[in-house]
């Protein structure tokens, strides 16, 4: 975001404030402008209640994912970005494999970033929509906790939905 410093000149705050986010998974650190980081409601609450030190530790989110989250926040903190630009940028961020997307949706949920949560959820929904449930189990690492009888019962529950439809 080369344009970020220029935008800052117009801002009323004379001094650019930054926050450092640190991934507790691999100790990677990211220095970001405060207004960028504040798009996370979780971080905003920490800052507002003076709980944030110089370095904000982010548990359970890897550096790789945190970088994506920050990219999203930077894009959306840029007031000159058009809606089209943002859409394209969002599409780029979520154009990842399903495993990265699951990490990303968890991160968006933890950091409470509504827009990112929405685009990521939608992307995951689109990816799993047409998958057989066995594949979904494998991808999500979900253990099948049904007994064969229960599974048959669940299937029977929805059989009507397929009747008469190809």
């Amino acid at each position: 975001m080369a344009s970020a410093p220029e935008n800052e000149k117009n801002a009323s705050a004379p001094e650019k404030k930054t926050l450092t986010l640190k991934s507790m998974i691999n100790n990677e650190e990211f220095v970001v402008d405060e207004h960028v980081a504040l798009q996370s409601v979780t971080i905003k609450n920490m800052v507002d209640s003076d709980c944030a030190g110089d370095v904000i530790p982010v548990p359970t989110i890897s550096g790789e994912i945190l970088a994506l989250v920050i990219e999203y926040c930077k894009n959306h903190a840029n007031p000159s970005a058009s809606e089209d630009d943002l859409k394209k940028a969002d599409a780029g961020i979520v154009a990842k494999d399903i495993y990265t997307l699951i990490d990303l949706v968890l991160a968006a949920n933890f950091l409470d970033i509504k827009g990112l949560l929405e685009v990521t959820s939608q992307k995951i929904a689109d990816s799993i929509k047409d998958l057989p449930h066995q594949d979904v189990r494998e991808i999500f690492g979900v253990e099948n906790d049904y007994t064969p009888e229960e599974e048959a019962a669940v299937r029977a529950e929805h059989d009507w939905a397929f009747e008469g439809f190809p």
């Binding site: 449930h133 979904v136 439809f165």
Partner: peptide, 21 residues
């Protein structure tokens, strides 16, 4: 939230069979 974009068929097909949650 992920399921929110699913239509009636998608909601009633495979996903309920994945696991009880």
């Amino acid at each position: 939230r992920i399921f929110q974009s699913f239509d009636i068929f998608e909601l009633t097909s495979g996903i309920a069979q994945v696991c009880s949650a």
